Simulated assay, not measured.
Amino acid sequence: MVGPLFMATDNSVCVLLRGDFLKTDHSIMDWLHSKLPSSVVYISFSRVVHLKQEEVNEIAHDLLDSGLSFLSVMNPPHKRTKKKKNDHVLPYGFADKSGNKGKVVQWCLQEQVLGHPSMACFMTHCGWNLSMEALSFGVPFVAFPQ
Rank of each mutant, 00 (worst) to 15 (best):
L32Q: 13
H61G: 14
K84L: 10
L109Y: 07
P140W: 01
G127M: 03
F137S: 12
M74K: 11
S131L: 08
H33A: 12
G67R: 11
C121I: 09
E111A: 15
H26M: 08
L16E: 07
M132S: 06
H50Q: 15
V142W: 08
M119P: 01
N129W: 00
Y92A: 12
Q112S: 04
K97H: 06
Y42C: 00
Q146I: 13
C108G: 09
T124S: 07
M119K: 01
L32R: 10
P91W: 06
L109R: 11
V105I: 07
S136C: 04
D25S: 03
L114S: 09
E55A: 12
D25F: 03
K83V: 09
P4R: 02
Q53T: 01
G127T: 00
W31C: 04
G93V: 02
V49I: 14
V113M: 02
L51W: 14
V105P: 02
P145N: 01
N57C: 03
V89Q: 14
G102C: 04
P37N: 09
E111H: 14
D62W: 08
S136Q: 03
W31S: 00
S12E: 15
P91T: 04
L63M: 13
W107V: 04
I43K: 01
C108N: 05
L51V: 14
F94P: 08
L135V: 05
L32K: 08
S27Y: 01
A8T: 08
V48M: 13
S72Y: 05
H33M: 11
E133P: 05
V41Y: 08
K84R: 12
V73M: 14
T24M: 15
L22R: 14
S118C: 08
W128G: 09
N100D: 10
Y42E: 01
F137H: 10
H78Y: 09
T81M: 11
R80Q: 13
P117N: 09
D10R: 04
L90D: 03
E54Y: 03
T124F: 07
P91H: 04
T81Q: 12
D20T: 09
K23Q: 05
C126T: 11
Q53D: 02
G93D: 08
T81V: 15
A8K: 04
G127I: 02
P37T: 07
P76M: 14
H61L: 15
S66V: 13
H88A: 09
F144D: 02
